[in-house]
Design a protein around this nucleic acid. Structure first.
Lengths: 345, 345
DNA sequence: CTGTTAGCGCTTTCAA
DNA sequence: TTGAAAGCGCTAACAG
């Protein structure tokens, strides 16, 4: 009394179950006559094959499902990436399961297990944990995993990562070129690999310019707007504040911009942010950023995954997705000679 | 040579397959001794149940999967909604399949069919088409469908919709209260139900204020920033332009703001937008909006769906999600007496 | 408490 | 070209 089955169709069409299977799967070795009768029965009963059941017996054992584990399907970076994966999957008739990790390593394991029980053909993971060795026992040998946004440890898989170090270096070099000597770095959780790379790029640019590292100008473990805003306020309560900020993530960038607004320093302090965000060009001054390309990252990850699913072998590959500096104004402000006066206002 | 099966576990533990099934499913009627042996074998073989296979024979025939059809999983509205659905699903151990419709009715049907073949336990659809009668033959009687953001036609299902008409009326009433008499409406594709409702709300507010409808001040079928920007430019090339804009969607709002910037009218023309967007509060002037609550819409839709999946019967319900006017500055600008002079600049 | 048998909806294998 | 039988991994129904 539930959905009609292949057997129901066979009975209605007066053919064997196997003939229905052939028609449904588009095999050509069925006479036109029988095929038509089967099709008529399919239409009349509104038969829809149960692909979960077919996968059980099918030789390739594919579920035509992939799973994507992201930081948060609701944030702009993750959701752009998700959309790009969907588009690649769609051309192949593959469905996409998603889950949000919220920087929780535990959740990463849980979801890897859940999607394994669903027999996803492959996984795309933006790791929240620092060690993916657990995947060895969690996923099957022949289930490919592609890592995106952050590198993996302890498990072989293709890897799609933005050029975080060089992007950050370029950002800070840009500030140096505009005359800045005291450049602060506002970073995300220090345990996040991308945050570390961006920090590393910052240090490299300072070294390159022969500038000393001032630990007081480096604030880490900022993960949301509020934290970034208050860290910036604190920075500008100091006697000798920086003339420029390099922020390592868009929520941090926005938090810093908010603080500068409150302090009325938004036209006095230069800012370059890592990762672009909507409307950055409409702020005053418009925000200079090192833009990532989440859609390209998603597309690249999906294509790599499907190549592996289709049987590609060989050592894990690294795909480096270039970042690009977008000059909009905030990063081109010269160092203010009178920051303390401005603050006094 | 693939994944270990329940049979492999049974052999290793020296018990029957059914005993393994009991342990794996947490049934208590197994002696501690056997349960421990089974668990040991599970751990040693890294056994993971194939829930696709179990669903085939299980009495409730649930896949513990729901499908969500959205406009575009990459846009802020859809992705916030998606995230809220995920959170509800997670508490129930249910996985979420998603798909983007891109305003394509054909795609809506396709995806409904695909997810039916996956035997999703229920569907959440933000309709792209105007008629959902096709669902009658596409989904099973007992597969609940909940519609979100836009109403359904021709198919019974709970419906979760923002108060578009009253929200739009409130927006325009707000502009009227600030002295505006010539208020333009920039709307999305006229075929989109939410766009029509917002247009209707606009008309209601004008009528309430005793203002005549000026067809020249109504521009429809704007779906992206570029279209909205050029429509706004055109509007201000007219001899007698409006002193305020009511924009019906956030891309349209942003396009209009861009145009006003270019015309240097952003402090002269009042703007209220429908639907909030990130950083609206950081623009100058900050943008007054009628905010929707996509997360609440997603949560409400998911809860309604799970109630139906859990057997709730009764007539389709309507859940009206309230909008809220957020005053930020752009909507509180008074009518400019010298718009033409300002434009002349 | 434990096991045996049947069968979910489908594809495979093999025979006609 | 068509179909019968077996079986994918699992749970239900029923025995012991």
């Amino acid at each position: 009394m539930g959905r009609p089955t292949m057997n129901d169709v066979a009975r209605h069409a007066g053919v064997s179950l196997k003939t229905v299977s052939r028609v449904v799967n588009g095999e050509t070795s069925v006479s036109a006559d029988l095929a038509a009768r089967v099709q008529a029965a399919v239409d009349m009963l509104h038969y829809r094959p149960n692909i979960g059941a077919s996968m059980l017996r099918r030789a390739d054992r594919r579920t035509r499902t992939i799973a994507v584990l992201l930081e948060d399907v609701g944030n702009p970076f993750s959701s752009s990436l998700h959309r790009a994966v969907e588009d690649e999957a769609r051309t192949r008739g593959v469905q996409v399961l998603t889950g949000s990790l919220d920087e929780d390593p535990q959740r990463e394991r849980e979801l890897a297990r859940v999607f394994t029980m669903r027999r996803a053909d492959g996984l795309i993971i933006a790791p929240a944990s620092t060690d993916q060795a657990y995947l060895a026992t969690e996923v099957q040998q022949d289930t490919p995993v592609v890592f995106v946004d952050r590198p993996a440890n302890g498990f072989p898989g293709d890897c799609v990562i933005a050029t975080n170090v060089t992007g950050a270096t370029e950002a800070v070099r840009h500030l140096v070129a505009h005359g800045h000597r005291r450049i602060a770095h506002l970073g995300d959780y220090a345990r996040i690999p991308t945050a570390r790379s961006r920090h590393q790029g910052y240090l490299a640019a300072l070294a390159e310019a022969g500038l000393a590292v001032e630990p007081d100008l480096i604030v880490q473990d900022l993960h949301d707007e509020a934290a970034a805003e208050s860290a910036t306020m604190t920075l500008y309560a100091r006697p000798d504040p920086p003339t420029a900020l390099f922020t390592s993530q868009n929520l941090v960038t926005v938090g810093a911009v908010r603080a500068l607004r409150r302090l009325r320093l938004h036209r006095a302090v230069a800012v370059v942010g890592f990762d672009d965000f909507p409307l950055a060009d409409l702020l005053e001054p418009a925000v200079t950023v090192v833009a990532q390309d989440p859609a390209l990252m998603g597309r690249t990850a999906a294509r790599a995954l499907f190549e592996r699913i289709d049987g590609a072998t060989g050592a894990p590959r690294e795909f480096w997705i270039p970042t690009s500096l977008i000059r909009r104004g905030s990063g081109e402000l010269p160092p203010s000679r009178s920051l303390r006066d401005a603050i006094a206002l």
